[in-house]
Write a protein that binds this DNA or RNA. Sequence first.
DNA 1: CCATAAGTTGACCAAACGGTCAACTAATTG
DNA 2: CAATTAGTTGACCGTTTGGTCAACTTATGG
Lengths: 208, 208
Amino acid sequence: MGRVSDARERLLEAANTLTWKLGYNAVTVDAICEHAGVKKGSFYHYFESKAALSKAAIEDWWQTKSRPVLDRAFSVTNPPLERLKLYYAALYELQVQRQKAGEQVLGCLGFSVAMGRDSVDPEVWETTQHVLQRKRRYFETAIRDAADAGLVDVPDVEASVQAVYSLFEGAWARARIQNSPEPLVGLYEQTLRLLGAAQPTAPRSQVA
Amino acid sequence: MGRVSDARERLLEAANTLTWKLGYNAVTVDAICEHAGVKKGSFYHYFESKAALSKAAIEDWWQTKSRPVLDRAFSVTNPPLERLKLYYAALYELQVQRQKAGEQVLGCLGFSVAMGRDSVDPEVWETTQHVLQRKRRYFETAIRDAADAGLVDVPDVEASVQAVYSLFEGAWARARIQNSPEPLVGLYEQTLRLLGAAQPTAPRSQVA
DNA sequence: CCATAAGTTGACCAAACGGTCAACTAATTG
DNA sequence: CAATTAGTTGACCGTTTGGTCAACTTATGG
């Protein structure tokens, strides 16, 4: 029945691309439409509001972009600490590819939107909050598994999960701010220090 | 000559209060004027644009709010690692007071604005960037002093500075996102782990 | 005491904003 | 080959945005 179209998918993609770059508030419906090659009338054929589009776009980003990378790296077939290493490496690799393509370092989409809190539509913010919680759970499981396997030496596992996750998000946020992958370098080694795990290789430089 | 007024100061204060809560883009000139009890005509008597006000407001926030706390905590009269502890404690205390007053956890103003990057006026963004760099230097000096005094055990001081600062900003960003000081708990102990420094007291809980 | 400079005001503007709608077009299916 | 249904379009709307301006008020210094 009726004709078919991929306009909905183009709108989701455009919303994520622009929101990732500019944040929720700075992105206009007109800009999304232009980027997607869709007229405004069609926009409101698919979504009842800008907030509804954003909600759907973030959920789509999680399912198609974020989760697959997490599932691959944090597979239970990998040793617990190896999962973190693989995840950091995968994200870093994506970043290097982006730079090669002349694009910017944008950090985590969900984190950027979530930082907006009071200036973001409540339902959209709730969606990002939910996504970040799911992401954090990957870290939690890996670190608990590492603790159970005696691979780490920490007095308080929950506190360590918090710290590792804060370090991770903080480094990515700083990478965005500086538009450079520099704050991401050595993230895994620093994570091992937080967890009191054995260092894998010799340090790169010596001071004092 | 002419009459005197504190409207300029009220505008600076209003701009910071609202920008801290809502971010750069979500704050309107009208809202700033209303909050400051200043009519729009007066606004443009003092500042040539919204961006100019924001620049001045952020610089003012750094000089009057942020720097004094840093200078007190990071005084060279304090032992290097004690400086970090004092700073964390001071910020945490401010947060507790805010919560008592029924206010929200808002994290670092400069960091929030800086995260906006491409949706913030370039000059405003440059100002926040500058402020964050100065703040980071306090961490750098303290950690270098600690390294020189043999208080820490790290293979690469610069990498440790990056990590400690990322952990710090990440925890504060997460506190904002969750509207709770929870991610800030134990920040100093985790910092000591990153720096390979001796733990001060017994851990609060034991797992495994 | 009064000229002058600093500060105030509210009406106004063009552009951009999120959103609406009735008319139109074109695939799909009975 | 209709009839149906999904998708498209561009003109339009009320509101909000950052910003302007000429007229007005008031404290201060000579």
